[in-house]
Design a protein around this nucleic acid. Structure first.
Lengths: 406, 406
DNA sequence: TATGGTTTGTTTAGTTCTGAATGAAGGGGA
DNA sequence: TCCCCTTCATTCAGAACTAAACAAACCATA
């Protein structure tokens, strides 16, 4: 493919801002190296950004053998973003600063199958946004448990929510008058992980979530893989056994039927480890208390996950596997089965692939969605399309004239 | 002629040439759209290429509502490339024109485990190249059954050849004095498929080879995925059964233990379908003759492959699956088991993914390797690195001064 | 304390590329 | 036939970018 020099300055100015936001203050020389731009251009661009009030000069850094670097830092009030996580029973919303820090959170019950669903969603977001600070709001990121045709369009197919071609992006955009980016929730998480988490240092990573279900996002050559219809990363329906429980998808032996939360609960009930009406918390408590039958259930799940991920390491050759999600709270129990199965199933040449478990917070999903907005400056290939351009535009415009914010 | 064309012009000039080679003649406007360049720049670049004699103006095309397009086409004598396939018992070499057509082929026995292996390889290539036409030779592409650190470096790890960090790229480059690109053979095939085959119309594809082993290459967002160490696409060791035959990698239930050529032969012998000393051709003959026990073996292999590929469709969300390799000759037998297993294992939303079986020729592997050289112009991200730059340079220089001294 | 080396940042001159206006060449309807 | 529309291609002013030289600030070492 040829280079896309369209709107280069726009992309480069934003890339500087994003880099400062993601990696903290940096010198002009560091930025030039990181973004593959000439020092000459960095001088020019940083001058513009300084006069626009988007960045400012910080203290000098001690010399590293030559002239000491004058650091550049973001002006924190330059912008903020709103992230939305849509689940099958609630909506979580967060407001994050341009540097990725969470400023405000909210969570409310929500019925995605209701006919008034879209109006309700708009209403909730309007109220949340109204309560925010007065720094420019750059846009809204939405994470959904399903396939999204394109981030900028935001047409969602999510069987678990009962959605078929739900026009989330277009509707929110029209009603809120803001740039809106919609993406699969695991992919959004991967974007956040790449900006702020461990993925920052890895251009090829496999990001796996465990919780109510199991999901994955694929980072290759620094970008999150979407696939032809935005559906890449669906590892829950990898066949891992020739005969096994019947999955919701109609098949036997899907990975999900062994390791999803409901699968663990089902197994625990069958084996009498927990009461017929008890749930995952009972199983977790039993395992934490050292009940062998309970820890075995987690360990077996870890075993299945380990084998499946080893297969994916062979297919994708990532540098690292990063595990996230509500289920990571029980990782100590999973790892008993995971580690031996994973390592044994790997070819010798791949046996060194590290597996990292990131700390998980309640609002991580929504934070990931917000990262969609804050990541747009990196989006040179136009993954976010027109909406990404609008986000960049708002960042530059509103900072230049901070008076009328929507 | 331009005084000092920088990297970007170089890339764009080459992108034009590659597009013409891959997709046939095109108008300036079409090229501008395809390569995301402005029409203004296309005018400039095509003028340069015309005066350099690399392209020429063809006939007008009938109007499509406006001014008719004046088509531009490659000058066929602008260059050629050599492709090398290295297998565990022989080496195949082809010479292809800039438009991808095979001009000449050769195949000789070869022992990759011999200590004189590199010298032998150089010798064979020297002799082959000496017999070629006098159009400029742009470079040599090498396909190997193993992991390659980077196309331009060409450090190969190939257990099946007994190679550990074999410096194929550096050695050939030094000895031949030509740009050399080394890549995993399935990845090279994917590059060719993307340039000349069905993959031309698909930015996200899964390319699967069946034959002595089973392999895959992943095309995402238009590019062939290499993974962190050039090892992506290894699907032979996906775990597909909880207990099964022990694989050469030491595990149980790898896909390869069910569907590789040696696995089929082993099963056929166990079941008495073929004689204990007979091989794959005997099994094939039996199946072609309609022997149920033989067709069943293929059908079972198809079943396993179908389930595994369905899993990968969920993970990668390709637009299409393309099947290649020596084994495609028996596809009619495979498909009995493949189709139902594949379709059934897919989630409803993905059930429409087409599976295409491409015609296979003996020299397809080597042709794929040659495509590495001819594809370098597309290589904006520098996958081929310095060697790619050299290929482009040769293309421009040699065409600018054909025959004369430079 | 000079001297040379290193890293950072700026300036200058010149190239590459885009946007917008314009010309070129044809189709189709009243 | 004339007029408007579409698509293809070129021209030109100016923006974006780079390379290369230079200036600034600091360290190390003799």
């Amino acid at each position: 493919m040829a280079l896309r020099p369209t709107a280069r300055t726009d992309v480069n100015r934003s890339a500087i801002l994003a880099h400062l936001g993601a990696h903290g203050p940096a010198s002009r020389a560091q930025l030039a190296r990181a973004l593959s731009l000439s020092p000459a251009l960095m001088t020019q661009l940083s001058k513009d950004l300084l006069t626009d009030g988007l960045i400012r000069e910080l203290a000098h850094q001690p010399s590293q053998g030559g002239r000491p670097a004058r650091m550049l830092g973001l002006v924190a009030s330059a912008g903020r973003a709103v992230g939305v996580k849509i689940a099958d029973d609630h909506v979580a919303v967060v407001e994050v600063g341009i540097d990725g820090t969470v400023l405000r959170t909210a969570s409310e019950p929500f019925d995605p199958a209701a006919s008034t669903m879209l109006a309700e969603l708009v209403d909730r977001l309007r109220r949340f946004i109204a309560g925010g600070s007065d720094t420019p709001l750059l846009g809204v990121g939405v994470g959904v448990p399903g396939d999204v045709d394109a981030q900028g369009t935001g047409l969602v197919n999510a069987p678990s929510l009962g959605w078929t071609n739900a026009p989330i992006g277009a509707t929110l955009r029209r009603e809120l008058g803001l740039p809106v980016l919609v993406e699969n929730n695991v992919n959004a998480l991967a974007v956040a992980e790449r900006l702020y988490g461990l993925g920052r240092r890895h251009d090829d990573a496999l990001i796996v979530t465990i919780g109510t279900g199991v999901g994955a996002a694929i980072v290759l050559d620094g970008g999150v893989v979407r696939g032809s219809r935005g559906g890449a990363g669906e590892i829950g329906h990898l066949p891992v056994a020739t005969n096994g429980p019947v999955c919701t998808c109609g098949n036997e032996g899907c990975l999900e039927t062994f390791i999803s939360e409901s699968a663990l609960v089902r197994i625990a009930r069958e084996r009498g480890v927990i009461a017929p009406a008890a749930g995952i918390s009972a199983l977790r408590a039993a395992a934490d208390a050292g009940t062998t039958a309970a820890t075995e259930i987690f360990s077996e799940a870890g075993h299945q996950l380990g084998r499946a991920l080893a297969g994916l390491v062979h297919v994708l050759d990532p540098e690292i596997i990063i595990v996230l999600g509500e289920g990571t709270a029980d990782w100590s129990h999973w790892s008993f089965g995971f580690e031996p199965a994973f390592r044994a199933a790997l070819m010798p040449a791949r046996r060194g692939v590290p597996v990292a478990v990131e700390t998980w917070q309640d609002d991580s999903w929504a934070q990931g969605a917000a990262a969609l907005v804050l990541a747009t400056p990196f989006d040179a290939e136009g993954l976010a399309g027109e909406q990404g351009r609008l986000v960049r535009q708002r960042l530059v415009e509103q900072a230049a004239a901070p008076g009328e914010s929507a």
